[in-house]
């Protein structure tokens, strides 16, 4: 009853409805991209990009420019750089760590120099108030494009994720698809950052896939399942944060953590039952 009441009252505020729509779409996008990123062992890229995005937002606000207009190109650029770094395997994950902490430092310095310290927390940990109408429309448009692209290229994304050299040998443009995934990730990270916060957005990418992998054994099932889990966790986290008055981003991540623990238990249980049947 309490929940139903909470949901109705959430939907009576227009800024909460906006946050719901944007959040659902971004969670869905993040979870789908997360399947590729996690399985390719690229999940750190999401983390690096979110820190770069934080710094871009901070600089934009210090110079009083439109936040997304600055953040999207900067994060796109960073995604190209991170992908190249990974390809060459020169420094691998330490390079990502260097870039992300450097970006974080620049962002913090920018915020403190420009004097508006209240923004810092909202960028780091997210705020549903931060989503403007323009942000919302842009987010919806980009998410729809992204979802359509993902469905259209689904089979190729599977092939490139599963076995890159076979795909390249049989004439699939793997570089194009790797870049596409990086670009889409960059966009998703920026879109989700306002709500989730720079420090928490990468959890939207990583958690749902990890959950789904415990429960499903085919790629398609993992994609669908991680999309569902992600949207469900977002919904529960959002309602919980409204009812309990906790920060949105952190609540959503907490729900994701619970989902992961539950999936591990369920996966373990199912395997044991199966084993008992066979043995």
């Amino acid at each position: 009853m309490l929940i139903a009441e909470a949901v109705t009252s959430i939907f009576s505020y227009s800024f909460l409805v906006r946050a719901f729509v944007v959040g659902t779409l971004v969670s869905l996008c993040a979870s789908l991209l997360g399947v590729s990123l996690v399985l390719k062992r690229y999940s750190m890229i999401g983390d690096g990009l979110s820190h770069v995005g934080f710094s871009a937002l901070a600089v934009a606000s210090a110079l009083s420019l439109a936040p997304l207009a600055v953040a999207i190109p900067v994060v796109l650029l960073a995604s190209f750089v991170l992908l190249r770094l990974d390809n060459k395997k020169l420094m691998g994950d330490s390079a990502i760590a260097v870039i992300s902490s450097a970006a974080l430092a620049i962002g913090v310095l920018c915020v403190s120099l420009s004097g508006t310290n209240t923004d810092l927390e909202s960028y780091m940990f997210g705020s549903i108030m931060a989503i403007s109408d323009a942000d919302a429309y842009l987010s919806i448009a980009l998410s729809v494009i992204l979802l359509a692209g993902y469905v259209l290229f689904y089979n190729r994304i599977f092939a490139v994720t599963f076995d890159e050299s076979f795909s390249r040998a049989t004439g699939i443009r793997t570089n194009f698809f790797n870049t596409l995934i990086a670009v889409l990730t960059a966009i998703t990270v920026v879109l989700g950052m306002r709500m989730m916060g720079a420090l928490l957005i990468s959890s939207l990418i990583i958690f749902p896939c990890l959950c789904a992998r415990k429960l499903c054994s085919s790629f398609k099932a993992v994609c669908i399942c991680s999309g569902l889990i992600s949207v469900l966790c977002f919904f529960v986290g959002m309602v919980a944060s409204y009812v309990l008055g906790t920060p949105t981003g952190a609540s959503i991540v907490a729900v994701n953590v619970i989902a992961l623990v539950l999936s591990c238990l369920v996966g373990w249980g199912v395997r044991n039952v199966k084993g008992a049947h066979q043995g």
Binding site: F158, A159, S165, A169, C216
Partner: peptide
């Protein structure tokens, strides 16, 4: 093409049919 060693990760969720079908791309 059939590689000598696939770079496929050990814990990749994919069904046999999905793997074979990906050859048709």
């Amino acid at each position: 093409y059939m590689p000598q060693q696939t770079e496929v990760q050990k814990d990749f969720p994919a069904s046999v049919f999905e793997v074979v079908l990906s050859g048709r791309l």
